[in-house]
Computed example of a mutant assay.
Amino acid sequence: MSVAGFAAASFTRAVGAGLDPHEYQRVTTELAALDDWDEAFIRAGRQHLARAEKAASPVSAGEHYQVAARWFHFATLAPQAEYVLAAAEADAAMGRALALLEPHARRIEGPGFTGWLRGRTDATSTVIVVPGLDSSKEEFHAVTAALLRRGVAVFAMDGPGQGALAATSTIRPDYHTVIGQVIDALGVDRVGLIGLSLGGYYVAETAAHEPRVAATATVSGPFRLDWDALPPPVQDVLARRAGGTAAARDFARQVDLSTLAPRVTGPLLVVDGGQDVIPGVTNGEPLARLAPYGKYLLVPHGDHLLGNAQPDWLPATADWLAGEIR
Rank of each mutant, 00 (worst) to 15 (best):
I278F: 07
A50G: 11
G192R: 08
V182Y: 00
V154R: 00
V178K: 00
L148F: 07
G5N: 13
T282G: 08
L100E: 08
E30A: 15
A164V: 10
M157C: 13
L31Q: 00
D184L: 00
L290Y: 09
A50L: 13
T76A: 13
A153H: 01
E53T: 10
V15T: 11
V143W: 05
A88S: 14
D91E: 15
A142V: 04
T28C: 06
G163T: 03
L268Q: 05
P232F: 05
R190E: 12
R43K: 15
P311E: 02
V188M: 02
S220G: 15
P232K: 05
A146T: 05
D35T: 13
P286R: 03
P111M: 09
V271H: 08
A33N: 11
L77F: 12
A40L: 03
N308V: 09
F72K: 05
E23T: 11
E324N: 01
G274I: 04
D276R: 08
E138V: 06
G132R: 06
G5A: 15
S2G: 14
A78E: 09
R289M: 07
F74D: 08
H176C: 02
A242F: 06
L297F: 04
I194V: 15
L225W: 13
L117H: 09
P103A: 08
P173Q: 02
V84C: 10
G302Q: 04
G200R: 02
G95P: 02
Q254A: 10
A164H: 13
F6Y: 13
G95F: 01
T170F: 14
V154M: 00
P79H: 11
P311T: 03
V129H: 01
P292V: 01
L230G: 02
Q47I: 10
A309Y: 07
W37V: 00
A142D: 14
L268S: 02
T12G: 03
R289V: 13
H64V: 07
M1V: 13
G307C: 05
L287Y: 04
E139H: 07
V84W: 02
P103C: 03
V67A: 12
L77W: 13
Q275K: 12
F72G: 07
A217S: 12
D236C: 06
V299S: 08
T114C: 11
D158P: 05
A97I: 01
T114I: 11
A78V: 09
A81V: 03
V277P: 07
A322K: 02
G132Y: 03
D36A: 15
R241I: 01
L287D: 04
Q66Y: 10
G302V: 01
P233Y: 00
V59D: 10
